[in-house]
Amino acid sequence: MSRSPSSWLITGVVAMALGLAAGDLARADDSDDNHAHHHAVPTQSAAQRTTAEYTIPDVDLVREDGKVVHARAEFDDGRPVLLGFIFTTCAAICPITSATFRQFQDKLGPNEPVHIASISIDPEQDTPSRLRQYARKFGAGANWQHYTGAVAASVAMQRAFEAYRGDKMDHAAVAFLRAAPGKPWVRIDGFAAADQLIAEYRAITAPSALASR
């Protein structure tokens, strides 16, 4: 039988879900007629949208310019927020997330009052100067800041957004949008295209949406 394009992904996810050792995984792969793989796992391109109430934790972060900021004050400054988690030595997931954030930034233009935030999940490695290098690499403009801080602060942020998976190497692609303080967060799991993010952004920041609730 034929395999779906994401069959290797599914194999990995199933193996992880079952807590299998690598040996078991290899064994499962010995045969490609194994039906046990076929659970409903979304492909990467099908980003999933949900909304949620998250409380930004009472922690300090360190911005790429070296300034210590209070997370709540930083993200509750009134502007709409696009928020994500990255680390600068991440090989596969973060470069895609950051490239998408850049497209989002560029499509909105520098005059849009939006706050784009990328928070490190490897904060001890990602010093402010490494974050500045990373920001330059992805063309971050004045509206896009990168944050590091103590390990506990980074973990608190990840937990608050239900994005903590225990280790930086176990992370998954997810982005968060919020129109204003007090409004719910739109959570997009998977790799959203910049156009999807823009559409979400337009929808939640439309005057009618802002007036509700």
């Binding site: 090989a91 596969a92 190497m169 998954a172």
Partner: peptide, 23 residues
């Protein structure tokens, strides 16, 4: 950032990152 090594690694043996398995 377009180089193969980012995901498939120096050995070419692939990688696992989160729920992404790179062959």
């Amino acid at each position: 950032t377009a180089a193969c090594v980012n995901c498939h690694r120096r050995s070419g043996l692939g990688n696992v990152e989160g729920n992404i398995v790179i062959p």
